[in-house]
């Protein structure tokens, strides 16, 4: 039994050691709101090296640097806008997952809306065309159809 316990403990230790190495360094914050802002900003900032990861998720050296800078700046009282400005001045709009709307990023922001509207317009046109096709059978055609059906009934 004691052997079983020891084995369990060893396995448990293994599980925790794995998660311990996976944890990215932690920072001490003087204020809980700073920590919340740190979380938000590190999720919005994009790692320039390992694209499509934010700096909170990435373990690249550059992300470690940017997290350290982010922590430093928040502790020295920088506002969110100042932090983002600092990063954008060095790494360009690329570092932001939500870049501001301007002439360069207009396509990025508007393309989904335009594509959605185009798709909706396409579906509307398709539906209207179909309705007209079915509606085209009425009036004279309908009279002809009933006449045909009557003659057929007589024949039978």
């Amino acid at each position: 039994m004691s052997c079983f316990k020891a084995c369990c403990l060893a396995l448990l230790a293994l599980v925790f050691s794995a998660s311990a190495t996976a944890v990215i360094e932690t920072y001490e914050f003087s204020d809980a709101t700073l920590e919340a802002r740190y979380q938000l900003l590190s999720e919005e900032l994009r790692c320039p090296k390992c694209q499509n990861q934010n700096i909170a998720d990435s373990n690249a050296p550059i992300s470690q640097d940017l997290r350290r800078l982010l922590h430093q700046q928040l502790e020295t009282g920088a506002t969110d806008d100042e932090v983002l400005e600092f990063m954008v001045a060095r790494y360009g709009e690329f570092v932001r997952y939500r870049p501001p709307f301007n002439a360069v990023t207009a396509v990025l922001w508007l393309a989904p809306v335009i594509l959605l509207l185009a798709g909706a317009a396409g579906i509307l046109l398709l539906l209207r065309g179909r309705r007209q096709e079915s509606a085209a059978l009425t009036a004279d055609d309908q009279a002809q159809l009933t006449a045909l059906l009557k003659t057929q009934e007589k024949n039978v």
Partner: peptide, 12 residues
Amino acid sequence: EGTLGVDLGVYG
């Protein structure tokens, strides 16, 4: 420390 690197926008 990579401080000049960050100021230059170096990422590798």
